[in-house]
Simulated assay, not measured.
Amino acid sequence: MSIKQIGPTPIQEYHTLNCHCGAVQIELHLPDGVVSPRRCDCSFCRRRGAIMGTTSLPAIRIVKGEDALSLYQFNTQVARHYFCSRCGIYTHHQRRSDPNEYGFNVGCLEGVNPKDLGEVPTMDGVNHPSDRKQ
């Protein structure tokens, strides 16, 4: 496992993401650590309250529990939100604003405490850029 030193805390290049019960395990390639973490205030994200990070589609690999993942879609049916069907924890989603990226639940990363991220900005998901008339 490759480690980069950024600031006072070493950043792992590969991270393991788990749901609460351990049925779902995902490997994320995050060579720069958790970059630009954020919250969203859309109707769904506001209720789940997770801090999200972003990575590219090739940088995520489901190690186990693909059969335990459930999919939830709403509104435009573009974003694909995944959660563990056993414990209910949101693990990741394919983004609506950029379907070539996944958002992931920072709170599910092993060895990462979301409180260590400090102040996390909130995106305006209520007024999503894809909903604006051109």
Rank of each mutant, 00 (worst) to 15 (best):
F83I: 03
V78G: 10
Q25I: 04
I51W: 04
I11W: 11
N105T: 02
D124N: 12
N18A: 05
G33Y: 06
I51A: 04
A59D: 13
P8M: 10
P129N: 13
G65F: 09
T91W: 01
N127D: 10
I26V: 15
R46I: 03
N127F: 10
V24N: 07
R86S: 10
P58Y: 14
P99G: 02
Q94S: 02
D32A: 11
N18V: 04
R80G: 05
G33A: 02
G103M: 03
P8V: 12
R46V: 03
E66P: 05
G53L: 11
E13R: 14
P99V: 03
L17N: 03
D131T: 11
T54R: 11
I51E: 04
P58W: 15
A59K: 04
V78N: 12
K133N: 11
C19T: 01
R61H: 15
Q5S: 08
M52N: 14
P37D: 07
I60E: 10
P129F: 08
Q94H: 02
P121Y: 03
P10G: 08
H81F: 15
G65Y: 12
L57M: 13
G88R: 12
N127R: 11
F44R: 05
R39N: 06
Q73I: 08
P121A: 05
V120K: 09
V63S: 08
Q5T: 12
G125S: 10
Q12F: 12
M123W: 11
C42G: 00
H92S: 01
N105G: 00
T16S: 14
R46N: 13
D124H: 04
Q94T: 07
V34Q: 00
Y90C: 05
N75T: 14
Y82Q: 07
V63E: 14
V126D: 11
Q25Y: 01
D41A: 01
E110S: 08
G118M: 06
L117D: 01
R96H: 02
M52G: 06
G65M: 12
V63W: 10
E13N: 13
S43N: 07
P10M: 05
G107S: 08
Y82S: 10
M1T: 15
H128W: 12
L117K: 00
G7N: 09
L69M: 15
D116E: 12
L109N: 00
S130W: 06
G33T: 07
C84Q: 09
N18K: 13
G118I: 02
C40A: 03
N113W: 06
R39T: 03
G53E: 12
N127L: 08
N105P: 00
L17P: 08
G107Q: 00
N75K: 13
S85P: 04
R61G: 09
G65K: 13
N113F: 02
P114V: 01
Q73A: 07
C40G: 01
R61W: 07
R39Q: 05
P121D: 03
A68E: 15
I89P: 07
